[in-house]
């Protein structure tokens, strides 16, 4: 048992003293788009700015998650035929997948899973091979220009490993971002959806909460008020390595075929 475990709050530990899996429940129905999470993340983790460009995408000028934006607040303006306006705001982050493609494909072991069940890049080991980037089904991790290595949310490994709440969650004024043991968060989220449905918010749905989904459930899941793709999220992501066995078999067969073709090529003269 790692020494730091002694620093963790009891609530983070299982009866046997090992840590519970910790994660995020982001309830976008109470997000006010203040971007405190985005700023707190950069401040704490020393992430560089992401450039100064006016996009015209509502109030979003950082566009999406990447090497220099680990928390990203999306703004979606919608108008009903009746003229009623609604403004969806959602703070996106690395999903810390149960089956993490980025981690699976990393050839150097730079990406690893922590005792708290989060997925973290070790900047001293990453060699910038870039494989994790197209492997992530959510478009989260990315390469930092000039540096070449891959960067993403560490779920504030330095804070969480000493019992502190992640910076973004602590900064969030409305508790749209809730950090805690994943199983508890999932119960709370289910209750919240029911409550919203009772209040007539029929659109409320959970995203990434189910352990049976394509990535075995996200360590950071969301309550959304519209389809995931509206927020720039894939509706049915599947960890790419699910088919890896089949892929290797096809490759072997193709390789064998190649050898066979060569053999055949030697039948005959010239």
């Amino acid at each position: 048992m790692a020494p730091y475990l002694s620093e963790l709050p009891v609530g983070w530990l299982q009866p046997d003293g090992t840590p519970r899996r910790m994660g995020f429940f982001t309830d976008t129905s109470v997000c006010i788009g203040c971007k405190a999470c985005e700023v707190a993340c950069k401040q704490w983790n020393g992430v560089p700015d992401d450039g100064f460009t006016f996009t015209g995408y509502s109030y979003d000028n950082t566009v999406g998650l990447g090497a220099d934006t680990w928390r990203h607040v999306a703004f979606i303006e919608q108008t009903a035929p009746a003229g009623d306006v609604r403004w969806l705001m959602s703070s996106d982050v690395c999903k810390h997948c149960t089956e993490a493609a980025c981690l699976d494909v990393c050839p150097t072991g730079s990406l690893f899973r922590t005792d708290l069940g989060t997925v973290v890049v070790q900047e001293d080991i990453c060699n910038g091979c870039g494989y994790c980037i197209p492997a992530c089904p959510f478009g989260v991790i990315d390469q930092r220009t000039g540096d070449g290595r891959a960067w993403k949310c560490t779920l504030c490994h330095d804070r969480t490993s000493s019992g502190l709440e992640p910076a973004c969650a602590q900064a969030c004024p409305t508790d749209s971002i809730q950090f805690g043991p994943l199983d508890e968060l999932r119960e709370r989220a289910a209750a919240r959806v029911d409550a919203l449905h009772e209040r007539g918010v029929g659109d409320a749905r959970l995203y990434g909460a189910s352990p049976d989904d394509g990535v075995g459930g996200a360590g950071a899941f969301f309550l959304l008020l519209d389809d995931p793709e509206v927020y720039g999220l894939p509706p049915d992501p599947v960890v790419t390595t699910r088919r890896l066995g089949a892929m290797w078999r096809r490759a072997a067969a193709a390789g064998a075929a190649m050898a066979a073709v060569v053999a055949v090529a030697f039948v005959g003269g010239g």
Partner: peptide, 27 residues
Amino acid sequence: GRGGEQRMVPRAEPRSYYGEPVLNGPV
């Protein structure tokens, strides 16, 4: 206007976030 309530726009498939990619492409 009403905050965060019933569905607002008819579906036009496939929808996206300002046409931005979902994935981070190969670098």
